[in-house]
Design a protein around this nucleic acid. Structure first.
Length: 200
DNA sequence: ATTCGTTTATAAGTTCACCC
DNA sequence: GGGTGAACTTATAAACGAAT
């Protein structure tokens, strides 16, 4: 299913709080923007400033405190599962960078968050952006997937992770899935994993 | 044979312009 | 000034092809 402006607001949990008006006023890609709002709202108490959020943009920046990256640049996409999906129980997001961009924008040393959100399950998935933005970067679009099992586990336990090997390389990435209410933990974990990758 | 990645197509939403 | 219509932009969906 798809979240379009005007219909699926009820799919989003109470957590939007005061962000709701802002989110509802947002424009293109309602589904994504709603997710943006939820994402931000989930981190509200961890952010240095819950205001000045530009949810109308993709990606959008988020400033956080303490255990989280100071500046996060969030690329959030709607995570879907296709009827014709080859792999049963697989969810995926399609990365399409704005304006012919070939790489994630890391200006200002922002930590890039590559995330997906599924409104039906109400779970986020966090990929390792660095692991995907390598070499020539992203062509036109790039799809990454998660197993449904991981998502379900995240739903019940709050946070879950899944490692999968990227073909073409011997590198493996870790996908972190999480419920909105445990997003801070998931992000922290994701960040730690990225750091570990850098020093290896 | 199966899984992942890339590309193309279709749909919806939003914005801009013109006409009443 | 308001309303209606058209065009454009961006997102979502699906299929195809390559690699393991």
């Amino acid at each position: 299913m798809t979240a379009h402006a005007g219909d699926d607001f009820t799919l989003f949990p109470e957590s939007l709080g005061t962000l709701a008006p802002m989110v509802m006023r947002s424009r293109a890609g309602a589904g994504t923007r709603l997710a943006n709002g939820l994402f931000a709202a989930s981190l509200a108490d961890r952010c240095s400033s819950g205001d000045t959020l530009e949810l109308d943009k993709r990606p959008f920046d988020l400033r956080a405190a303490a255990p989280l990256p100071p500046l996060m640049r969030v690329y959030l996409y709607t995570m879907t599962t296709h009827p014709s999906e080859r792999q049963q129980g697989a969810y995926r997001i399609q990365i399409i960078l704005p304006n012919k961009g070939r790489h994630f924008d890391t200006t200002d040393d922002a930590y890039v968050i590559l995330a997906g959100y599924n409104p039906s399950l109400e779970v986020f998935a966090l990929w390792d952006a660095d692991a995907h933005d390598i070499g020539k970067g992203i062509p036109h679009s790039k799809g990454v997937q998660v197993l449904e099992d991981t998502l379900l586990e995240a739903m019940s336990r709050g946070v879950a992770r899944q490692t999968r090997r990227l073909r073409g390389t011997d590198e493996s990435e870790t996908v972190v899935a999480s419920r909105p209410d445990t997003l801070p933990e998931a992000l922290e974990l994701r960040w730690q994993l990225s750091i570990e990758r850098l020093i290896s």
